[in-house]
């Protein structure tokens, strides 16, 4: 399960493990960075290397000083990586206007710490396999946007000024349906004369062109202005 490449020169072994952890952090972090997430390449690499160092220290750092009345549980320090990184992850989670965001990033950091720990203990193959799985999953998600069930939808808002007829509202809802936009909340405000200002909080697929939606909405009769 665990491999040690350099039995004689352990320092080199350690460096190799850290480099592997860093590389895997890089590989998985690229995807996050490309989407402008707060935890990008650097965070993933650093978490991976950090977990790796903790694991190495846990496993090899204490056995030289054990003796009478002094014991070492080589897994103890490493076990705290798990709880520790969860604190970090929980801090990544933000609640903005009653929406929870940053959950995928937090889970990603959690998985990254696991991979770093695996490299630290010397489980090269298992760690690489896990990295591969996550890499494939990440890319699967951004290529399969046509499958309804795994849609990645992002939050947004649409403000429309139009008349108060139900017909117009139906047409707007029709446009939303066409672009597979889900309405979270609806707000209505009385505007000048008899018109109403609608504020929709929506969720729409990442790949949607906002310009298309706005132009479709503006083409509806009685719609005075659209803001997205």
């Amino acid at each position: 399960m665990t491999t040690v490449f350099f039995q004689n020169n352990f320092e080199i072994e350690i460096i190799i493990r850290m480099i592997c952890a860093a590389i895997c952090g890089f590989v998985l972090g690229i995807e996050r960075s490309r989407h402008g997430k707060a935890a990008g390449i650097r965070t993933y690499m650093v978490v991976s290397i950090g977990a790796c160092i903790f694991a190495i220290a846990s496993k090899y750092g204490f056995s030289d000083y054990v003796g009478m009345g002094r014991d070492a549980d080589v897994a103890r320090v490493a076990s705290n990586i798990v709880s520790g990184v969860s604190f970090l992850g929980a801090g990544t989670i933000l609640i903005v206007s009653d929406r929870v965001t940053g959950l995928t990033t937090a889970a990603g950091i959690w998985a990254m710490a696991a991979i770093g720990t695996a490299f630290g203990t010397g489980m090269y193959i298992v760690a690489t396999i896990a990295t591969l799985y996550i890499f494939v999953i990440q890319n699967l998600f951004h290529n399969k946007l046509t499958r309804k069930r795994v849609y990645v939808k992002v939050p947004g808002s649409v403000d429309i000024v139009m008349d108060s007829s139900e017909k117009s509202l139906n047409k707007v809802l029709g446009v939303f349906e066409k672009y597979q936009m889900d309405i979270d909340t609806t707000g209505i405000e009385r505007h000048k004369d008899d018109s109403l200002l609608y504020r929709f909080a929506v969720n729409f697929p990442e790949s949607t062109s906002i310009i298309d939606v706005v132009s479709d909405l503006s083409n509806i009769k009685n719609v005075q202005s659209v803001d997205m």
Binding site: A55, A78, V82, D98, R99, V100, T101, G102, L103, T104, A106, A107, G108, W110, A111, A113, A114, I115, T117, A118, T121, M123, V126, A127, A130, Y133, I134, I137, Q138, F141, V150, V152, P155, D184, N203
Partner: peptide
């Protein structure tokens, strides 16, 4: 708008499994 999608659950599951294997 709840936030925990497929990817989150997969990452949590694989992370937990990996930690146990370690």
């Amino acid at each position: 708008s709840k936030g925990a999608g497929v990817r989150t659950h997969i990452l949590v599951a694989i992370g937990a499994a990996l930690f146990v294997i370690i």
